[in-house]
């Protein structure tokens, strides 16, 4: 994998729930461990951006989408498992 390419992620969450907090926390933690600070993460509240949900065709929340580099991959859930997180997002 090209290490120089900027990693860009979108994290969709639903409001201010417990599951949202968990997802944000785990996501940041995992990304920090794997990519250090070489990534860009945007957190989007699904409730306020329905149009984006349509564009990205999202139903399940929370969801993390790796926008860059391609291919686009995604993971749903609170992302508590680091190993799954790594393999599912092709970050190994």
């Amino acid at each position: 994998m090209d290490g120089k390419a900027l990693f860009r992620f979108l994290l969709f969450v639903s409001g201010d729930s417990l599951i949202t907090k968990k997802a944000i926390f785990n996501c940041k933690k995992n990304l920090d461990i794997i990519l250090k600070s070489k990534y860009h993460l945007e957190i989007i509240n699904a409730f306020e951006n329905p149009q984006l949900l349509i564009e990205e065709n999202i139903i399940a929340l929370p969801i993390l989408i790796r926008k860059n580099p391609l291919p686009e991959v995604s993971i749903i859930g609170d992302m508590s498992n680091l190993e799954l997180f790594k393999s599912d997002l092709l970050l190994t």
Binding site: A46, L61, V73, I76
Partner: peptide, 12 residues
Amino acid sequence: EMHESGKYNIDG
């Protein structure tokens, strides 16, 4: 193209 890890819902 989607994987599950932990709890989620279909709020979307």
